[in-house]
Write a protein that binds this DNA or RNA. Structure first.
Length: 870
RNA sequence: GGAAGCAUAGCUCAGCCGGGAGAGCGUCUGCCUUACAAGCAGAGGGUCGGCGGUUCGAUCCCGUCUGCUUCCACCA
């Protein structure tokens, strides 16, 4: 073995072997219900970022754990191809080569896009492999592949036939940069400083009279077709039905009454622009108002804007405000903060526009989706995310699914050019089925999340019947970050319920976000992103994975820091070296089939085995709760503090003893193997590397080995282990004593002990350990009558007979401190016991523990007092 | 405007069923003790955000206040 941990020496080699032997697809027990994890589609347009690294590491850990527990564990990978961002990227890439999207035509563009995607999709797969991810790559599927296309089309047709998909003119969110419609979920609201302008509209036939309206978007006034007031508003009741001259245009608009208007807000009069505002759109429908669109799809004022034609919407705003002021029609301007909608991909301010789009009726789909979570069939971990989901589902509005792009699943709707018949079909149509006229397919494609929503079954081959689908659906757990609950999780749930008649997964595990060291969200624009591959290159994959998972709380955000990663790398080194020590000392080991039943276990052996059993059950519990963070932390503590710091050191003494050597070797190997197995889901490479060199290896690969079973420590062994804790405390006390006196480890001294009765047996058996770990040349046992103890522990009173170690001021101070502590503890316990409420209501075990404390500390206090006198 | 989360050691964060609080890093002291200086042994450091309440007992449960973060939201 190398002198120290060197991941580059083995990581790639190991992964290649896993692939070669197809361990990822290995099925330990096909009769068990399978365990399936859905993998969110990474966005292939960017590099793998820390969020992916975290998310994929958690999924991989769960998959590996379940596989080791004998489940047929499958991790379905996927890649999201059909997004707006992808198309934008492809367009950019083509532009860099001097190629215009439109000049290629749809076919040419798609071909270029597929080429580009193959390249990047492949790159993502390679990156995930570097993370050690144990996907079954043979099942890889992309939202744009044939299988998924078939499923998408089938779902579209089914929903259409049920009347749950419809086409209509609605107010939608329009991105003037991407030039496509957006769903509500794709709009981000950002607070920005803006103005509230009060505009005066002259009343027709009443010279000098005005109605003042307030608006945050003056440029839309050119499209106003009415001014609305509340019907009960006394200020305006006489104006209802009158006409206003719309300034800057030659149009006359009516004053209408609508209860939507809040008389208490602003001036109580609202300008109505049905073509450019969702509320106005509805009012317009109620009052049959014209819709006058004053901008084109790029946010530039059109011919309806008269003199403002050709200006972009923001320049038009400035000019209109200026012109209104010139005309004396600007009553006042207030500065004001308000929320503007922005495109979540490109951050452009979203423009509400009326257009003909496809929608999914959400009400009928949402009801069962709400029920599935309410009834507990689907659980969110942590539970608080259920509220977010519920709130969204209960307030859901119809989903705009058409996008004005080329890169995506084309909407399977055909329109007859002769009779106007609209037809949705599973197969491409060449002629109208009603009149035989020629047909044209809808130009739009579907929202990328429409196909992603089908992931749990489309990747398994739906709509075709097949064994995989029967076996794996519904899947078990979906792991994802909370920022994607609406986009993806919610839609998978209602799609699964609608198409499959069953939930897509029973658990939604939500992980948090990875932020930078200052707590900011990592993003390209802030340029604070850290590439996981760089970290892997510098430290190794296992340290990266461990640092992302160790100690994280489910759903909580975390900060990424270089210090943390270094600490994790150091832990790998620790583990590596501990293994090296075991191997060096176990070359001649004779493996015993079941070490736990061995009759010659020492007190130290019993102790580590008991601690090990405790660790196994804690770790198992954590993994079963999908809490890899807790599992990793528990393992870190056990490995470092109990195995390395204590047992390995204790073993040194026993390995030198020919009587004990064989047993010790077996315990070392047994515990080490268990540690490796339990750590394997979190840090797959180093554990495999070490495992393959173990003499007591029990499988071809740790990946497919059996996870340690939880065993209850036998009572006798537990007792022995508990006694041994006292020995450890004694060693600690002697070490602390020596350290305070600045005795270098090289200076070894004799140690006199007066054993406490109940631990005298283990104490006499532990002389070897004490000599080694407490730097004692010799350990002498004294009768209780011998005074001058310097140290008092539960195991023994101790005395170190070196002239320069005794009776100085520092020692007296230390003893006083000990005394103060003991007295405080004693008082605390006594106070509790004197409290009638406590003795009556507290559990018996606690009361007993307090009584024991009183006894123990009374003794300690008297001994310390005695020592101080001497 | 609505909702959620977070406030614990100098920093970053754990803390499962309420029984007097932990880790990593940093700091200080002493050590190359034959697996590991990417290390070892020790030490110091916290009115668990403020105030009330429930309880024999509260970091934990309830209320409230303060500060930060995030999500949702068509009020011009």
């Amino acid at each position: 073995m190398d002198k120290s941990y060197n991941p580059k020496a083995f990581e790639q080699k190991i992964y290649a072997r896993w692939l070669e032997n197809n361990y990822f697809a290995a099925a330990p027990d096909k009769n068990k219900k399978p365990f399936t994890i859905m993998m969110p589609p990474p966005n292939i347009t960017g590099q793998l970022h820390m969020g992916h690294a975290l998310n994929n590491s958690i999924q991989d850990a769960l998959t590996r754990y379940k596989r080791m527990r004998g489940f047929m564990a499958l991790w379905l990978p996927g890649t999201d191809h059909a997004s707006i961002a992808t198309e934008v990227k492809i367009v950019e890439k083509l532009a860099a080569q001097g190629i215009d999207k439109k000049s290629l035509g749809r076919e040419g563009f798609l071909k270029a896009a597929f080429d580009w995607n193959d390249q990047y999709g492949g790159r993502i797969v390679e990156q995930l492999k570097q993370l050690g991810c144990s996907c079954d790559w043979n099942r890889k599927a992309f939202t744009m592949d044939e299988r998924c296309s078939k499923a998408v089309r089938e779902v579209f047709v089914r929903l259409y036939e049920k009347g749950l998909i419809y086409r209509g003119e609605r107010m939608i969110n329009w991105c003037t940069e991407c030039k496509t419609a957006l769903s509500d979920a794709e709009v981000e609201h950002k607070e920005s400083a803006s103005g509230l302008w009060y505009l005066k509209y002259p009343v027709q036939g009443a010279d000098g009279e005005f109605i003042t309206v307030a608006t945050t978007r003056p440029e839309t006034m050119l499209g106003d077709t009415a001014v609305a007031v509340n019907p009960g508003d006394k200020r305006y009741v006489n104006f209802i039905g009158k006409s206003l001259a719309l300034p800057l245009t030659d149009r006359i608009i009516p004053v209408i009454a609508d209860s939507y208007v809040d008389a208490a807000f602003g001036t109580g009069a609202v300008k109505i622009t049905p073509a450019h505002d969702p509320n106005d759109f509805e009012i317009g429908q109620r009052h049959k108002l014209n819709r006058i669109a004053v901008m084109d799809d790029g946010g530039v004022m059109n011919e309806n804007a008269g003199a403002y034609k050709g200006l972009n919407r923001f320049d038009a705003r400035k000019k209109i405000v200026h012109d209104m002021q010139q005309k004396g029609l600007l009553h006042k301007t207030e500065s004001r903060k308000n929320n503007v909608g922005c495109c979540y991909r490109c951050d452009t301010v979203v423009e509400p526009m009326v257009s003909l789009q496809w929608f999914v009726s959400m009400q009928p789909l949402a009801t069962p989706a709400i029920q599935a979570v309410e009834s507990g069939k689907i659980k969110f971990v942590p539970k608080r995310f259920e509220k977010i989901y519920m709130h969204w589902m209960r307030n859901i509005r119809d989903w705009c699914i058409s996008r004005q792009l080329w890169w995506g699943h084309r909407i399977p709707a055909f329109y007859c050019t002769a009779c106007g018949n609209e037809e949705v079909s599973r197969h491409d149509l060449t002629a109208c089925t009603a009149c035989g006229g020629s047909v044209k397919q809808d130009e739009d494609v579907l929202d990328t999340w429409f196909s992603s929503a089908l992931w749990p079954f489309s990747t398994l081959g739906w709509p075709d019947k097949n064994a995989d689908l029967d076996y794996f659906y519904p899947t078990d757990v979906l792991v994802t970050a909370y920022d994607i609950i609406f986009f993806w999780v919610a839609r998978m749930i209602f799609s699964g319920l609608e198409q499959m008649g069953d939930i897509p997964f029973s658990t939604v595990y939500i992980n948090g976000l990875v932020r930078d060291a200052k707590g900011r969200k990592m993003s390209k624009s802030a340029n604070n992103g850290i590439d996981p591959l760089d970290i892997i290159d510098q430290f190794g994959t296992d340290p990266l994975r461990f640092s992302l998972m160790n100690g994280i709380a489910p759903g909580g955000d975390q900060r990424f820091s270089a210090d943390k990663i270094e600490g994790c790398r150091n832990f790998m080194n620790k583990l590596y070296n501990a293994a090296k020590f075991v191997m060096l000392n176990c070359a001649d080991a004779v493996i015993v089939p079941d070490i736990t039943a061995h009759k010659k276990l020492s007190a130290a052996d019993n102790w580590i085995l008991a601690r090990y059993n405790t660790a196994v059950s804690a770790v198992t519990r954590a993994y079963d709760k999908f809490d890899a963070g807790q599992a990793a932390q528990r393992l870190y503590d056990f490995t470092r503090n109990e195995f390395c710091d204590w047992y390995v050191e204790l073993a040194k003494a026993d390995l030198a003893d020919p009587e004990r050597r064989k047993v010790t070797q077996n315990v070392l190997l047994y515990v080490l193997r268990g540690i490796l197995k339990m750590l394997h889901p979190v840090i797959p490479f180093i554990t495999e590397e070490i495992y393959m060199q173990l003499p007591n290896r029990d499988a071809q690969s740790i990946m497919i080995s059996e996870f340690p079973k939880s065993v209850k420590t036998p009572a006798k062994q537990a007792r022995s282990a508990a006694e041994f804790e006292h020995i450890i405390q004694l060693i600690r006390a002697v070490r602390a004593f020596r350290a305070e006196k600045n005795v270098p480890p090289s200076k070894r001294t004799a140690l006199y002990l007066v054993p406490t009765a109940d631990v005298s047996a283990p104490l006499t058996q532990s002389v070897g350990y004490i000599k080694r770990l407490a730097a004692a040349t010799e350990v002498f046992f004294l009768t209780p009558s011998v005074p001058s103890a310097q140290l008092l522990t539960a195991a023994a009173a101790a005395y170190i007979p070196s002239a320069d170690l005794t009776d100085n001021a520092a020692e007296k101070a230390r003893l006083l401190k000990e005394l103060a502590f003991a007295e405080a503890e004693l008082k605390l316990a006594q106070t509790k016991l004197n409290n009638a409420g406590f003795t009556q209501k507290a559990p018996q075990a606690l009361i007993d523990a307090e009584r024991e404390k009183v006894q123990r500390f009374t003794q300690t206090v008297s001994k310390l007092t005695q020592s101080l006198k001497n």
